[in-house]
Design a protein around this nucleic acid. Structure first.
Lengths: 345, 345
DNA sequence: GAGGATACTGCAATCGTTCGCACTTGGGTG
DNA sequence: CACCCAAGTGCGAACGATTGCAGTATCCTC
């Protein structure tokens, strides 16, 4: 009752007076040339009339192709991911694929289980937003030649195609903006070092500071344990207590920036008058805070779209062509209210 | 290469020295009783050792069950939905089901196409967050007896099971809170009237106002064209221009409240001193606005979980049992900074 | 010790498609 | 006229699991 459709290929074939095999060929664009135009037209018409919808399961069983793509995210309630999911979904569903969303809850065991499940289901490919810097599961995936594209976070080995934002340029823009305002004592609260984003942003930060000839030092960067407000607050406290000279904080992402802002408020340090703060990601609503958060805008939707496109190419074109292409999309600096010239000394 | 797993039931059977049929029975909890305990143990062990994972497609083809559930949301970037998705996903994946997420982009044609696609794929059931008050597609689904559960938004005919928040009580709490602060001139910016939430909240608002003996009137409610900041701003302007006496605004949701707040700021009306504003939904970060938004907290995660549970019951128990159960989960009022006693007259 | 019930297990059909192979036809060529 | 080629179609075996049916031990009972 609730099951699949009732009219099957056999019905169409019988109604059109041909063998099921022939009907199959007539209905399949890539094999329709092997059947006479007249027959093809007839079968197509009958199929239309009967409202034939091919059974994807049966087809998948035979062809070992499922037209299913899975996307792994660590936590869908993190506002970073929905736009990427949406971008990917639009591309995929336009190409006749179905997107399976999997929330791994930031847990690698869950992740592994889910991936097993999905592969058993014949999933054609994976879009993976959960990569850790060294990730045995992803190495296995690369070994097995499973079509997969990484988004947002990369892995150290660079063995899989990656689509992300040009984070280094983003950080560069931030530091230049701050330097342009007159800041010289700029510090960084970095994301976790087992994520590519944490590492890249921190390294880009150091490079930008050096490039501009600003004072450097090992205490310029504090690493946060995770991309959360709590971890940001904790790192801010550490940074303040280290006695490091500072007039501006470049945060690993917006949540970390929120943590920094609350600690500053607590300690009575006013932002932006006494301390400038910059986020990263441009989460929803950060422009409505008081003061509105200066941050870096990432092309999340585009990242989702492009990752889906690359994955489709890999699935349909075979494993060779894309190699492990690394693509970085442009970012924009959104200057708002949390940055201002440093206080006069 | 990219295909499914390689060890199949036949391999397990051969390695265990039994017939595939027997192996199948040994591996399936519901039929394991039909096989000797000793054999069962042996097969299980071999399966474990070889890392056997059943091919879901083949199984589905035979049993006409896919262990796939689809969830339809109008826009995954709307922060209302991710928690529900997450709740549903956790329940489903624990039960061995896979969740397919579909973003309909608020478009009924897209929605219909997606549903066709998914049914062809043998989807076992639907969780639907896109319901409109009168929705032909959903009536069809009800007609065909496809297992489906509505969340967040209901349909007029009440023909499908529904899981939502107890919105009426939420509005009641809001109005009581405002009345308790001394407000008597309370108005409502309602959500679109083609959504159940828009209708319910508006009706609950009227009832609460009357129940408390506050002044009533037809101009107490302005309907917003959509659940967006822009529509909220527009309705606020209309309300102010109508000359209606008012000291507090109860908004259909948080986005509408944001629209209201910006119009008030524009006109120099201070919140909460001169005008109290209340939202609905408790979106992420609204507690960090200045002032933090008073709103109603919905058990979104729970709604997702429960909807998944109900759907599973319907799928596995057959169509009869749940009927069209309507379940409402409790809400909480979050009193923050946008509500205060009315200005002295 | 014979008959029958019971407990396991093997056999083979089946789910709906796809696709390699073989067959038939018609037309072109030497 | 004999031969061959190619186009079009039918045939049936897969894909990997489930399941009704039937067969064979095993054990109990009288």
């Amino acid at each position: 009752m609730a099951g699949a459709q009732r009219v099957k290929l056999t019905d169409v074939a019988r109604a059109a007076g041909v063998h099921p095999g022939t009907a199959s060929r007539a209905l399949n664009p890539s094999t329709v040339s092997r059947v006479s135009p007249e027959t093809a037209r007839r079968v197509l018409k009958v199929a239309q009339r009967l409202g034939y919808v091919p059974n994807t399961l049966a087809r998948g069983l035979r062809t070992s192709k499922s037209f299913v793509v899975a996307m792994l995210v660590p936590d869908i309630t993190n506002a970073l991911f929905p736009p990427m999911v949406r971008g990917a979904e639009q591309v995929l569903s336009a190409a006749g694929y179905t997107l399976v969303l999997t929330d791994t809850d930031n847990d690698s065991d869950t992740e592994r289980r889910q991936v097993e499940q999905l592969r058993a289901r014949g999933t054609d490919g994976f879009i993976i937003a959960t990569a850790r810097w060294q990730d045995p599961l992803l190495e296995e995936i690369a070994d097995h030649g499973v079509p997969a594209v990484l988004v947002n976070r990369n892995i150290g080995s660079r063995r899989l195609p990656y689509v992300g934002a040009d984070e280094r340029t983003g950080i560069q823009l931030v530091v230049e903006h701050l330097a342009g305002l007159g800041h010289r004592a700029i510090v960084h609260l970095g994301g976790p070092s087992d994520t590519s984003t944490g590492r890249d942003r921190a390294s880009a930060f150091r490079q930008a500071v050096e490039g501009l000839g600003l004072p450097t030092g090992s205490r310029l960067v504090q690493v946060c344990a995770s991309y959360t407000e709590a971890a940001g607050a904790e790192a801010t406290t550490r940074m303040l207590e280290s006695g490091q000279d500072m007039t501006a904080i470049v945060c690993g992402n917006d949540l970390i920036a929120l943590g920094a802002l609350s600690v500053l408020a607590e300690k009575g340090i006013r932002c932006p008058e006494q301390m400038s703060v910059v986020g990263f990601n441009n989460l929803a609503m950060v422009e409505r805070l008081t003061p509105p958060l200066t941050t870096v805008r990432l092309p999340l939707h585009q990242i989702g779209e492009l990752s889906a496109r690359l994955l489709l190419a890999e699935i349909e074109g075979g494993p060779q062509n894309t190699g492990a292409i690394q693509s970085l999309l442009g970012v924009q600096l959104a200057v708002r209210g949390t940055t201002a010239p440093p206080p006069p000394t």
